[in-house]
Amino acid sequence: MAQERHVDFLELWQEKMFLGQEFLTWLWLSSEVDNKFAVPGGTEIEVWFENSIRLEIGQGQSRKSVTCQSSGQEDGSGWAEAFTAVWRNKKVSNARLRIRSDEREWALTLPSDTLSPKSVKLLAGADFKQAESGKAALAGALLDRTTFLVELANLLENLLGLFLGLRLSQAWETEELPRLKGWVARWAQEGQPGNP
């Protein structure tokens, strides 16, 4: 029973593996265009991608990937190589990004297959401090960190929910995808941002 359930999960995960890459690609392009995301409940989330993005196309032995570094320009031109890769149908498979909501700001790495946050740092809004020795201090640090990580997990779920809502709507094919494609095309073909 448990084994069957696990096999079903693996099949489903494999079948829908593209969702994570689409989500990260959408999140990156949207963050370059809009920067801010309004999620249900009135929360506003700011997202920006830091200095390195890995993009991929294909699976297994036919997989091709490229890692692009941002040269740091604020108008997005630092990502010229990455925009070109997207134009050639690669999608984001791993990236270092920052997320800000209310007074909290996080830095984290997200792989597209699991969206499991890696190397998470809390940069603002609370003290993600090193635990002192002593059981009470360690327990306090564990509880604080768990609370912050629950908040981060909720923010990521909100962003994924926003993406899936769009992805599964008619507006995906008629509005959102053409809007982002047009933006990528102008970057890739003309080397400058167009009107989103």
């Binding site: 079948e15 829908k16 134009w87 999608k91 699991t114 969206l115 599964l168």
Partner: peptide, 27 residues
């Protein structure tokens, strides 16, 4: 991503998620 989607989506989007087969291209 897909199991989080199963948890946060409600009908009919949940059914659409399960039926989704074709990746989109941004390029």
């Amino acid at each position: 991503p897909v199991t989080i989607g199963q948890e946060i989506l409600k009908k009919p989007l949940l059914g659409q998620l399960m039926a989704l087969r074709n990746p989109s291209s941004f390029g």
